[in-house]
């Protein structure tokens, strides 16, 4: 493969910033990033609905005004209050998931301590631009969410989220005919940028394509679970 993948291997678990004797017995972590309004919170809520019962879940949100997304998830009733934490990002959502992950890491670890059965934590970034990306010190895998209404040239523009995320989700495909977005162009450009990394064309409104995202999350959660169990 031509891409530089020295920072991680394809086998879970990915080395984390977290260290110490309990380093491996922790929940799997998926970062969910993407531009404002692309559907990150809706995706988190849908994943929680679909994975609930199968896994013990937690969510950390990084909304611009602290509690907006956390409140949305509470209203959606998909998780108990104490499984949703909100982190302030000081006007810099990308800093909080990439350069200085201290507050997010602490939020994840506090949730793990409060819920020792936790299997999977979803860390939702605040809405940002195409240059945003998660540190692999914070998450094991990351999903980048864009939407067709943002224009079908977004995959061509690239940026770390589009080119390097472990799963690229193109949301709101049901809107494509109304905004003149060509999904074939988006698929072609995404493949150019991403090589073999997967892309899911999704409509969270109609449910189209959501199974693929769910399967990705299950894979991450089970990979971590299997690794932890083997070591125990």
């Amino acid at each position: 493969m031509h891409r530089d993948e020295h920072h991680r291997t394809d086998d879970l678990p990915v080395p984390s910033l977290r260290s110490g004797p309990d380093g491996v017995s922790r929940a799997a972590r998926i970062g969910i990033g993407g531009p404002v309004g692309s559907g990150k919170t809706a995706l988190v809520a849908e994943l929680c609905r679909r994975l609930q019962g199968r896994f013990s879940l937690g969510v950390v949100t990084n909304d611009i005004y602290t509690t907006e997304d956390a409140d949305f998830l509470r209203r959606a009733g998909v998780l108990d209050d104490d499984r949703i934490a909100a982190v302030e990002t000081g006007c810099c959502p990308h800093t909080a998931i990439r350069d200085d992950i201290a507050a997010n890491l602490a939020a994840v670890e506090e949730m793990e301590a409060a819920h020792p059965d936790l299997d999977l934590v979803l860390v939702e970034s605040g809405g940002d631009n195409l240059t945003a990306t998660f540190s692999y010190g914070l998450v094991d895998r990351q999903i980048f969410v864009v939407d067709v209404a943002g224009g079908d040239k977004v995959p061509r523009k690239g940026g770390p989220g589009v080119t390097r995320s472990d799963l690229l989700v193109v949301n709101k495909v049901d809107l494509a005919p109304f905004v003149g977005a060509d999904l074939t162009v988006m698929a072609h450009d995404a493949a150019e940028q991403r090589g073999e990394r997967p892309v899911a064309f999704v409509s969270l409104r109609t449910g189209e394509g959501v199974d693929a995202v769910t399967a990705f999350a299950v894979g991450v959660a089970e990979g971590m679970h299997a690794a932890t169990t083997a070591i125990r």
């Binding site: 982190v87 990002t89 000081g90 810099c92 800093t95 909080a96 350069d99 200085d100 992950i101 507050a103």
Partner: peptide, 11 residues
Amino acid sequence: SRLPSGAHAHS
């Protein structure tokens, strides 16, 4: 200020 010690989110 780039030391990753969480200070960036405090005013």
